[in-house]
Amino acid sequence: MKKRAQICIAAGLLLVIACFCLVSFFCLNTEPPENKTAEEKIVITDALGRVVTLERPAQRIACTHYSVSEAVQLAGAWDKVVARDGYLSNEKFYPGVDKLPIICPARNPLDINYEEVVKIHPDVLILPNFSWLGDPDEITGKLEPDVPVVFVDTLNPETFCNTIDILGKIAGTEKEAGEYIDFYRSIYCPVTNITSNIPGENRPNVFFKAFSDEIDDIKTYGSEFPGGNEFFNAAGVRNIAEDLPINCADVDKEWLIGQDIDAIAAICWDKKYPDTFGYNVSDPSFARTRAEEIRTQIGGLDVFLNSKAVENNEIYLLNNEMTSTPRYIITIAYMAKWFHPDLFEDLDPKALHQEYLDRFIPGDYNLTNCGLMIYPE
């Protein structure tokens, strides 16, 4: 009897212990099994201040505008892109781009083909924060919650690291995004540490000639151009149109003639000059000869003839992608070197440009053997 009692007591103790452990599991494990994926959820605040939540890192990304596409690539996530902008065409720069469906025309990244997006059903649609080209509320209203929409700033050098960080979180490529952020800061911080201390009177007055179909069309960037003044300030220059209430528009030629222009930076569209600008140009010698002709044409325009820029041959050419994509960080380095050579004796913009291509762009490009992106180098 005594032995049987001992067995009953032991069994009872085991039962109590088992019940205690079971209760402890449910009480102490405050996260229910069905919420285990909560740690994987991605919560970000986009450029419009909208809080967007993804259930998990995106494996299927749709995006528009080439600045967003390049930013996605810099964040290490181009292989996740399943739909793209109609502007992209460089298979070498964007492997597989020709096979990706187009969801917007080349000239308007917010003119979304909603039917195509719904058919593709990406995990997220990433768009540039270009509200003057479309209504963000209309876009989100037609797609969310089925397709989350994220707007990002791609043209503001002061906030670009945050953009890359957001893209890395969206795609689950934080390591790759962090590597680019380190590279970006290695250029931006040393340059702006110096240029931020350059007084206004020591900053050259630069006219930025926006690209146009005809060389005598005079367009420029004003105060409403996204990231524009931040870009100019970082390079240590003054945009003479910084106070004009325009994005990118024609300027009054009489007004321009009356301006004090120390230098001209002309944006050249590679599709207008296919034999001169772009990484895929095969004859760099001819490209440089053609670039000199373009400089001469610009300097001969009536609005510039009497300027110090023409008198001192301070005319520079920029491929449009060097200002309208994340490569503007390289342009900032070039401009700092052009306009403040004494302050940046050790800065080598061409080497930084080559490193950008070697480390973050799939194509095998050698700046010595291709067309122009910046001139003169």
Rank of each mutant, 00 (worst) to 15 (best):
K119Y: 11
G141S: 15
A75R: 09
Y66I: 05
H121G: 08
D85Y: 03
F130S: 00
P95H: 10
P122E: 10
N113G: 03
P136V: 01
L54H: 08
P32R: 15
G96L: 09
A38H: 12
L143R: 09
V117A: 04
Y87F: 15
H121A: 14
G134D: 01
N108K: 13
K41Y: 09
D111Q: 14
P105T: 08
E116W: 09
W132D: 15
I139K: 06
T30C: 12
N108R: 12
D137V: 10
V82K: 02
A83G: 11
E34Y: 14
L48C: 04
I102H: 01
T64L: 00
S67N: 12
E116R: 14
E31I: 15
K41S: 12
E70I: 08
G134N: 02
A83L: 07
L74V: 02
L133N: 01
G96D: 09
G134W: 01
E34H: 14
S69T: 06
W78G: 02
C27Y: 14
K142S: 15
S67M: 11
I61Q: 09
P32N: 07
L110C: 03
I126G: 03
S67Y: 05
W78K: 10
E39Q: 12
N113A: 06
A106N: 09
T37D: 13
G96Y: 03
F130L: 11
G49I: 14
V118N: 08
F26R: 12
S69Q: 10
F93Y: 15
I44R: 07
N129V: 03
L54P: 05
P109A: 09
G141T: 10
W132H: 14
T53W: 04
A58Y: 03
T140Y: 00
P57W: 07
E115I: 00
R56V: 02
P109M: 00
G49H: 14
D135F: 10
K142N: 15
A77T: 05
V82D: 05
P95Y: 08
R50E: 12
H121Y: 07
V52H: 10
I42A: 00
V82A: 04
L100R: 05
N35K: 15
L125I: 05
E138M: 07
P109D: 01
L88F: 06
I61Y: 09
V51I: 12
V43R: 14
I103T: 02
L54E: 11
E39W: 06
V72Y: 01
G86D: 04
I44W: 11
L54M: 05
V81T: 10
Y87D: 03
T53K: 14
I139L: 04
V118L: 11
K36V: 15
P136F: 00
N29K: 15
E34N: 11
E91D: 13
V124K: 04
I102N: 04
L133E: 10
C104T: 13
Y87A: 12
D98W: 02
K119M: 10
P32Y: 10
I44G: 03
A71Q: 07
K41T: 10
V82E: 05
W132K: 12
V68R: 03
I61E: 08
L28V: 11
E116G: 09
